[in-house]
């Protein structure tokens, strides 16, 4: 197929689909054809998470459709797709944050270190600490910077004051924020800039020693400079953490991620190494999305 040979250098304006017409893609029509078949280039790295035929419903709304997706360890996996395609829903299912939304229904498995997180007897508190989450809008508590980072440890209990102080410092360093806040730990977190607040939220998640960081468009509310800092931080964090990041910014996906999954109306259309997905899409819809045809 022609689009497989097209590269990113083609501007969206000069690129035409194979029948020569520039047309809007009708998502619904395309989905009914091969709805839940994923064009998969399986990762070679060991897996931290694997979902198997995961289906999620909000009431009658089928938000995630039979998604089987590998998430390799200590890599950055980007989830992209048009707004409303289920990226946040998928992300929230991984650490069971969906549980707090009423009227959700889930089938299939989410294997985390080969154990289904929806199995009986899973400790949800522990699970959520092992899979930390960073939200779209920076959401520090109206507490001091210190108290924000210490929150998770205090909830857990059993840590001494000095252990907590230690951990707060390490986490703030880990989130590249320590130098900026070390002299104002007791001031309100709400006095920080948006970018600093988001790094504080990352530090807050790091404090409980997670293995995975789930980030839902962590930079979409930030200015370009703050965005770059977050992206640099993601590069750093990849040494130790498995990262899943939702982004609707294609450049960001190419800058930060090693693997990319492309969603469309709840289905995982394509998954593979980011460079391959972007430069040699296996699916026409992925290609159209990357070329800015819809979304």
């Amino acid at each position: 197929m022609s689009q497989q040979n097209s590269s990113l250098n083609n501007s969206p304006l000069t690129t035409v689909s194979k029948d020569g017409a520039i047309k809007r893609v009708n998502e619904e029509r395309l989905l009914t054809s091969a709805e839940t078949v994923t064009k998969m280039r399986a990762p070679t790295a060991p897996l931290k998470i694997q979902t198997n035929t995961l289906n999620i419903y909000y009431g009658a709304n089928h938000a995630i459709k039979s998604v089987s997706m590998p998430i390799p360890e200590k890599q950055v996996t980007a989830l992209m797709g048009p707004s409303g395609c289920g990226k946040s829903t998928f992300l929230k299912s991984l650490n069971r944050m969906l549980d707090i939304i009423p009227d959700t229904h889930i089938s299939g498995e989410v294997l985390f270190d080969n154990k289904n997180v929806y199995a009986h007897g899973i400790d949800v508190v522990e699970l959520r600490q092992r899979l930390g989450m960073v939200f779209q809008r920076p959401n520090p508590f109206p507490k001091s910077i210190f108290e924000n980072v210490a929150y998770g440890l205090k909830i857990m209990g059993g840590f001494s004051r000095s252990e907590i102080a230690d951990r707060v410092e390490t986490s703030l360093r880990g989130a590249a924020l320590w130098d900026e806040v070390q002299n104002r730990l007791n001031q309100s977190a709400l006095g920080l800039s948006g970018g600093q607040q988001q790094r504080l939220c990352i530090a807050r998640a790091l404090a409980v020693a997670p293995e995975v960081l789930l980030m839902d468009e962590p930079a979409s509310a930030l200015d370009p400079i703050a965005t770059l800092k977050i992206e640099d931080l993601i590069h750093e964090l990849r040494q130790q953490y498995t990262i899943v990041i939702v982004t609707h910014n294609l450049q960001q996906a190419t800058r930060v991620s090693q693997y990319t999954g492309f969603f469309l109306t709840g289905a995982l259309i394509e998954f593979g190494p980011t460079a391959d997905v972007f430069e040699h899409s296996l699916d026409e819809r992925t290609y159209d999305f990357i070329m800015g045809r819809f979304g």
Partner: peptide
């Protein structure tokens, strides 16, 4: 609420 629950509270 979300931030707190996501930290295991």
């Amino acid at each position: 609420r979300e931030a707190s629950m996501a930290l295991g509270a």
